[in-house]
Computed example of a mutant assay.
Amino acid sequence: MANERLRALEDVEKEIAMVLQCAGTIVLELSKDKHNASLLERQLVQFQTSVNRVESELSSQIRYLTQVATGQPHEGSTYSARKDCQMALNRAEYAKVKLGELGRTCELMLEQQQPQPQT
């Protein structure tokens, strides 16, 4: 799944390169005194087609990332489980610290309650 998404992004990158190439060709042709209308038309159609593909694929990628980022478990994701595990470890460590403090407090109280030997 991740490899497919990466391949799709590589395709988007190629389409962006095509968009830039078409735009360059159009600008170059328009800068001429006498431009070729059929070439301009073909480049414009290619430009629009590529822009539409880029927009469509990027929208798809964004929708996917939005679903993943909601915290809902999805196939192949371990983020939620790792986060839960880390939070559990943090809580356990906090409990350990608090129990240690409680133990020290109890020891101090017991020491204070023991009768002091009289000499």
Rank of each mutant, 00 (worst) to 15 (best):
M1T: 15
E4D: 13
E4P: 01
R5L: 07
R5P: 03
L6K: 06
R7E: 14
R7N: 11
A8P: 02
L9V: 11
L9E: 08
E10T: 13
V12M: 01
E13Y: 06
E13V: 14
E13L: 07
K14W: 09
E15W: 05
A17W: 00
M18H: 08
L20E: 15
C22S: 07
C22W: 00
A23D: 13
A23C: 12
G24L: 02
I26N: 08
I26D: 10
I26Y: 05
L28Q: 15
L28N: 15
S31P: 04
H35C: 13
N36D: 15
A37D: 09
L39Q: 04
L39K: 02
E41Q: 09
E41W: 05
L44D: 15
L44K: 13
Q46E: 15
Q46R: 11
Q46K: 12
F47M: 03
Q48G: 14
S50G: 09
V51R: 00
N52M: 10
N52C: 07
R53D: 04
R53M: 04
S56M: 05
E57L: 03
L58N: 03
S59P: 00
S60P: 00
Q61A: 09
R63F: 07
L65Y: 08
L65V: 15
L65N: 11
T66V: 10
T66F: 00
T66L: 04
V68I: 14
V68P: 00
V68L: 05
A69D: 11
A69N: 10
T70C: 02
G71E: 09
G71D: 06
P73E: 06
G76A: 05
S77N: 01
Y79M: 12
Y79R: 11
S80W: 04
A81R: 00
R82Q: 12
R82N: 10
K83S: 07
D84E: 11
D84M: 09
C85E: 14
Q86W: 03
M87W: 03
A88Q: 03
L89I: 12
L89A: 06
R91L: 04
R91T: 11
R91V: 06
E93Y: 01
K96M: 03
K96A: 05
V97T: 02
V97G: 00
L99A: 06
L99D: 08
E101R: 02
G103Y: 03
C106Y: 01
C106W: 01
C106N: 08
L108Y: 05
L108E: 13
M109S: 12
M109F: 05
M109V: 14
E111S: 11
Q112F: 06
Q112N: 13
Q113W: 10
Q113V: 15
Q116V: 07
P117I: 06
P117W: 01
T119D: 11
